[in-house]
């Protein structure tokens, strides 16, 4: 889980991320206009699963729960947060009209510790609660992923996966060991997805372009994942940490590919819908990136700052 940067205050603005779930379009516009006064970033998701996924990847400084969620969904979300040792630290503000028989009002003891209820949209209340969450009150500071320190102890590990979703989830987890998780996540996702689609599933560059243009990319991935010989193939990720380097060795079971021409952005391919992942990974995430012939193993390294 990636912890967001500490909220900071300066020049009258606050930095931090507010996540909105269950807000209809009109409410979200009002929320965004209100929070712009503080300078806070705001993201929006539609439902409870999306909110939990988002929060696991990037815990916000505050969660706003809107009235477009049903009462049951709202309560289920709050219980999920309460039961998560990290997410229960995120302040939550629920905005909706309530009647006396509202299940939440009869279950106050089961709510997360920093839960605020507002019976209607009130920009003043919203501003004051958000400001309280962002300004650095220790009890409302965004949660720090204690996992980061645990992962610092990890010296070597090996993982295998098959699907794009598994690639994404593993990349998020592995990025937590890195000094700049958001950069590392992007690089790892790009290399790991390449290993699935171009490596194990043997989708060529030209074929991927065609699939992007006609909208059939995800369907073709799903089809090949069920098809011999691709169905039994796995991507292997080996992680190694030494004193000054993090090394990720990503191996697929495909025949390899002509990797040389994808290390840099190519102006001749600037309007193609694909073909930028490796160059992006190399430029954004890694200190060093190299392929082993015939191109089905990539080794990506991140240099570590010397320890004090």
């Amino acid at each position: 889980m990636t912890a967001p940067p500490e909220p900071t205050e300066g020049n009258g603005t606050l930095r931090g991320l507010v996540l909105s779930v269950g807000a209809d379009d009109a409410s979200f516009v009002r929320i965004r206009e209100t929070l712009q006064k503080l300078g806070a970033d705001i993201a929006r998701v539609e439902d409870v699963p999306a909110a939990l996924n988002y929060m696991c990847a990037q815990p916000p400084s505050l969660l706003l729960v809107g009235a477009a969620l049903s009462n049951d969904c709202e309560l289920a979300l709050l219980h999920k947060l309460r039961d998560d040792s990290l997410l229960r630290q995120v302040p939550v503000m629920c905005q909706r009209p309530r009647t006396e028989d509202d299940p939440l009002l009869n279950d106050l003891d089961s709510l997360p510790p920093h839960c605020y209820l507002s019976s209607a949209f009130d920009s003043v209340v919203l501003l004051s609660v958000v400001r309280g969450a962002l300004v650095g009150n220790p009890s409302h500071a965004p949660p720090v992923a204690s996992g980061a320190s645990r992962f610092e102890l990890l010296r070597e590990a090996r993982f295998t996966f098959r699907t794009l979703l598994e690639a994404q989830e593993l990349a998020v987890e592995l990025s937590r060991v890195c000094p700049e998780p958001s950069r590392a996540e992007l690089g790892l996702v790009e290399l790991m997805i390449n290993a699935v689609e171009h490596g194990n599933l043997e989708i060529s560059y030209e074929h991927k372009s065609m699939l992007c243009w006609n909208g059939g990319w995800r369907a073709e991935i799903a089809r090949r994942l069920q098809l011999a010989p691709y169905a039994s193939r796995e991507v292997s990720v080996r992680f190694l940490r030494d004193r000054d380097t993090l090394r990720f060795e990503i191996s697929d079971e495909g025949p390899g590919f002509a990797w040389h021409k994808f290390l840099d952005f190519d102006p001749d391919r600037s309007l193609d819908p694909n073909g930028r992942g490796i160059a992006l990974a190399r430029n954004v995430a890694f200190t060093r990136l190299r392929y082993r012939e015939p191109g089905n193993v990539v080794v990506a390294e991140i240099a570590l700052e010397p320890r004090q």
Binding site: R32, A43, Q58, L186, V189, E190, N274, G277, L280
Partner: peptide, 8 residues
Amino acid sequence: TTTYIDSA
């Protein structure tokens, strides 16, 4: 309000 993008 976009927090992350990739090559896709």
